[in-house]
Design a binder for these strands. Structure first.
Lengths: 189, 189
DNA sequence: CTGATTGTGTGCAATACTGAACGGATTCTG
DNA sequence: CAGAATCCGTTCAGTATTGCACACAATCAG
């Protein structure tokens, strides 16, 4: 891709994320975004039809990154590991400014639901791949986990917890094991 | 000026100053500069004939800034004040990375001399404006001060002293008074 | 209400940037 | 030494960006 396109998009997205962290999405203007990105206003319209499109693409990009962060081990592992979970939480920690702003009360409407939906699809696929229901109603289990995980993420990115990303990852990993979402450790007889 | 030109120049200068701080000027390549600036190699040649021109323009810009920093009080003051001197040292402190790199042993050849020359011209003008020689050979006094000030600047920007920019400014101001380079304070009789 | 201000989305010609190519110089590397 | 690799400085056609213009909508202050 042309270097100019990359630079412009990065600048625009960066400015947008900054602004999201500073004020309500509705009162962000294209002028502000262009100014902050040090880019002509026309350039913004060249890449995005309006600020809703910009928001949408921004969210999509982050969700792709998030999903990607769940299996970074060269595709060799089909299931998350303690290691990959640490990596995911590390990613969330690094991008906390965006996720926190989007999740905030007056942040991006329905963002929490979209995040939850992404997590739900992830868990759903995971259960399908494992093949075993293990005595639980699948829909309930998956819903349960998606909601819980969304909450954990919110705690992390809004700095509402004193636990570090690594500590949180460790705790959540234990919960995943307890809920039989990952290959079980054999209890020593 | 076209926004693209501003952005490109800033990126190139920024990359160049970074590199100056990392390695010998001679072994810096145009490729590196372009890469670091996230700019096409051709763009560098669009603004600078070669790296020597880039260096030259970079030095010129900094010297203009430096001179500018000496009288920031809206041109109302003809002579430096304790306040303006603090401002100047603050400026040097903020741009220490460049000045230190340029002054370094294997930094920019003859940079120290050019800096000294700038300071010399400044002091010379200052003595002329004051109109009074006060019993000193002007050339000697000015030379003396320019050399001394260059040394002070080097101390500051290379972090060779534990004194802060403000402390240094205060001390140097006292020396300026002692050498009758500024309007004298009346000794209380 | 009215005029002023600010934002939106679109269109346009001018232009700065890009990437690729090239020949030639210099420097590694075996 | 020979060949590979890197850098230089230039050219060029294609493209993204710019700044300005416009008409229109929304918001706001008097």
């Amino acid at each position: 891709m042309d270097r100019r396109i990359r630079k412009s998009r990065e600048a625009i997205i960066g400015a947008f994320i900054q602004l999201i962290g500073e004020k309500n999405f509705e009162q962000i203007t294209i002028n502000e975004i262009a100014e902050r990105a040090n880019v002509s206003r026309g350039t913004v319209y060249l890449h995005y039809t309006d600020k809703y499109d910009l928001l949408d693409q921004c969210i999509r990009t982050h969700f792709v990154q998030l999903i990607d962060s769940c299996l970074p081990c060269g595709e060799q592992a089909l299931f998350p590991t303690a290691e990959s979970l640490r990596y995911t939480f590390r990613y969330l920690d690094d991008h906390a400014s965006f996720y926190a702003a989007a999740l905030a009360n007056q942040g991006v409407p329905a963002f929490r639901n979209r995040l939850q939906a992404v997590l739900l699809r992830g868990f759903d696929k995971q259960v399908d791949m494992s093949g075993i229901n293990r005595g639980m109603e699948k829909g309930i289990l998956v819903q349960f986990l998606a909601v819980a995980m969304t909450g954990m993420i919110e705690q992390l990115v809004t700095r509402a917890t004193t636990y570090s990303a690594a500590e949180l990852a460790e705790q959540v990993w234990a919960l995943m094991e307890r809920n039989q979402m990952v290959p079980q450790v054999q209890p020593t007889p």
